[in-house]
Each structure stands twice: as C-alpha cells, then as structure tokens.
Amino acid sequence: MIIGLEHYLVLGALLFCIGFFIALSKKNAVGVLIGVELMLNAVNLTLIAFSRFGATEVALSTQVFVVFIIAVAAAEVAVGLALALVVYRNRQTISVDRTTLLKG
C-alpha cells in the first residue's frame, strides 16, 4: 500500500476532531487553548499534504498560507494567555464555566 494524500487527510481529520473535543470539553481556559492549537495544526497538516500531492500551481501558495497561519496562531496564543492571566487576577479562576460576567 502506498502512503498517499488520503492517509494525511484522515490523520488531519482525526487530529482536528481530537482538538475540537478538547476545546469543547475542557473547563480550564489553557486547556481550551491547547485544543485550539491542535485544530490549527491539523489544518496546517492538511494544507501541507495538499502542497505535496496537489497541483504544482498551489504547492508554493499553500506553504506561504501555513506560514501566515502559524504567525496568527502565535499572536492568538500570546493574547489568549494574557487574557487568561487577567481573568485569573480579577476572578480568581480560569475555569471557563465560572467566568459568567456577561451572563444575562
């Protein structure tokens, strides 16, 4: 059996779903961020798989796209963790179901 595009796509889909489940089910805000990071990585893996096996015209632009995704993910993590620290300082918890300040 030759390892081809489908193998990487299935792997990316499984990784995305694990990250999705972590992001939905964890109580800890940092745990939710970890799940979001896994989802972003799964998408990157899928894009790189298309870059390797897809048409020649998209081979380069997908890699540039992945570079931009990594940069935006780094910015997102920095701001997200700073927000978690501020929430902890004001509410003494970073549990996402106990920060109910905006609840009507």
Binding site: K27, N28, V30, I94
Partner: peptide, 26 residues
C-alpha cells in the same frame, strides 16, 4: 520552542489549584 514555553509560563503564573485539567464541562 515558543508556544509551549509560553503556555508553561502562563500555567505557572496561576496557582496549583488551577492546574487541574481533569474537570470537563457538564
């Protein structure tokens, strides 16, 4: 290199009680 270290720092800046990852939402 960077993001995991950032996460470890954020975890270590909050006290031990907040390091519990076992709780899931209902």
């Amino acid at each position: 290199g960077a993001i995991s270290v950032l996460m470890l720092f954020a975890i270590m800046l909050t006290p031990r009680a907040e390091r519990d990852n076992s709780q899931n939402i209902k």
